[in-house]
Design a protein around this nucleic acid. Structure first.
Lengths: 127, 127
DNA sequence: ATGAATGCATACTAATTTAGTAGGAGATTA
DNA sequence: TAATCTCCTACTAAATTAGTATGCATTCAT
């Protein structure tokens, strides 16, 4: 397996918010529907907020909503935010840097394809 | 990051064998050139052998060589052998099975693209 | 005002996976 | 027969991922 549950949980949460857009939904509600630990999901959504993918409203009856229309949000951006990077391999050895790395071309090609695929899917397509 | 060093080391080792094809090369020699722990690489190559990607010859002056011409070996097969699977996400929760998984489509699309990309590269292209 | 519900922040722990080590039996060649 | 390999299994260390715990700050409804 390659991507962790961070991307999976995050995508599901975002799809949930997309369905309710532009209504405000609490983490508690999302975690109940999606079957994800509240506290864990809370942290993931924080990261999405800090990257301006969702907006929050505090206090009672507070919660989250998408920062913009789900048609304008790309799955690639969500995955990249939660996983940190989208590159399939971190080639940072000296060996690679000096060009002696035969596998580099593979990971480069692959990263381009992964980006193209994930950024080609809108969040709105998940509902 | 998504793929582990297993795929990386394995690919580099295979590229090395491709360069020397059809000569027999020892693990020790490969690990020296590629800067990989002998014992770790040994185990990776064992997996490649059990999947008929390389052939071994035992004893002194023994070593490994590709099971067939590098033009006939696909990078995808090597990666899949070492990483166990090429799927970007393991969706085995009940949640997903009953079709309630909004993210499933993403991982399906992505897996298809990854396969297409990696199986579209021949080992011979790495040298 | 006050209490309940919610976001926000940080630190800690548990579980899993990845990477690497150790030791040795068996095969082959010079 | 000694050196050099593959082959096999078990163990350990390091890193990452997943999840928990605790509590403050903010907001709404009453």
């Amino acid at each position: 397996m390659r991507f962790s549950t961070r991307a999976e949980y995050g995508l599901r949460a975002m799809a949930n918010l997309a369905q309710n857009y532009p209504k405000c939904i609490s983490v508690k509600d999302i975690s109940k529907v999606e079957g994800i630990s509240v506290k864990y999901l809370e942290r993931l959504i924080q990261e999405l907020r800090k990257n301006n993918l969702v907006k929050s409203s505090k206090g009672k009856n507070g919660g989250y909503t998408l920062a913009r229309n789900p048609k304008l949000l790309k799955v690639g951006k969500i995955v990249e935010t939660l996983e940190g990077t989208i590159a399939p391999m971190k080639c940072n050895e000296a060996h690679c840097k000096i060009g002696g790395c035969s596998s580099r071309m593979v990971w480069n090609k692959l990263e381009i394809q992964i980006r193209k695929t994930l950024y080609g899917i809108k969040l709105s397509e998940l509902i």
